[in-house]
């Protein structure tokens, strides 16, 4: 198993999370942070990077320990490890930017229960060597961050007329308040899902022809 050609499969592993199995747009996982914190691109990026960090660290560590963890207590062990890295991220974000910390609120702590992480650990990291687990986690993390940015970017453009805090339309822009409210999150997510469904359908039609 460990003697497979690594190069090619690693690339595929990475793309898996970013595109084919994108956690937000394809698997629709981690919807709670995806809808709740994506009122601006900056928040989305912060949340995405925090989740990516937790994903990579937990997956790598668990993959290294995979032979020592007895089956019966594996979930408990995973959660302890994930919670540890979430706590670390919590401290680090506070040290880096209090503004971001306040904006993300309770959702940093809630990364613990983000199903993307436990899902990755259980279905991939627990069965694969560290390098492969890390690459897979990185792909998923990037995919999640892209998903959040796609939501946060659109919501910030309409909701505040800016992107990453840079004004796009000048002083007189009329913000679409609904976009920074929870319904706006659902609308934008729905539109993106529609777009990806359309892409998938078009691809299918082409392959069929």
């Amino acid at each position: 198993m460990s003697s497979q050609p690594l190069q090619a499969s690693n690339m595929e592993e990475l793309l898996e999370g970013i595109w084919k199995q994108n956690p937000v747009f394809v698997m629709a996982l981690g919807m709670c942070p995806a809808l709740a914190v994506t009122v601006s691109a900056f928040n989305a990026l912060g949340m995405g990077l925090a989740t990516t960090f937790v994903l990579i660290c937990s997956c790598t560590l668990i993959s290294m320990l995979r032979r020592f963890i007895p089956r019966e207590v594996r979930i408990a062990t995973y959660i302890v490890i994930i919670a540890t890295f979430v706590t670390l991220v919590d401290y680090i974000i506070q040290a880096v930017s209090l503004a971001l910390y306040e904006a993300l609120g309770a959702f940093i702590q809630l990364i613990v229960v983000n199903c993307i992480i436990l899902g990755r650990v259980e279905s991939h990291a627990a069965k694969n060597p560290p390098l492969s687990a890390m690459v897979n986690a990185l792909g998923m993390g990037i995919g999640f961050t892209i998903g959040l940015l796609a939501l946060g970017g659109v919501r910030e453009i309409f909701g505040a007329g800016q992107l990453f805090g840079i004004s796009l339309f000048g002083q007189n822009f009329q913000p679409w308040v609904v976009m920074v409210l929870p319904p706006g999150g659902f609308f934008v997510l729905g539109l993106w899902l529609l777009f990806f469904a359309w892409l998938a359908k078009r691809k299918e039609a082409r392959h069929g022809a």
Partner: peptide
């Protein structure tokens, strides 16, 4: 015994990490 040992190992490792970063 093995379960207890693993959990203790993992938790002390994690505890150490948290204290260090804190």
């Amino acid at each position: 015994l093995r379960m207890v040992r693993t959990l203790m190992l993992v938790t002390s490792l994690c505890g150490g990490l948290i204290v260090a970063v804190w």
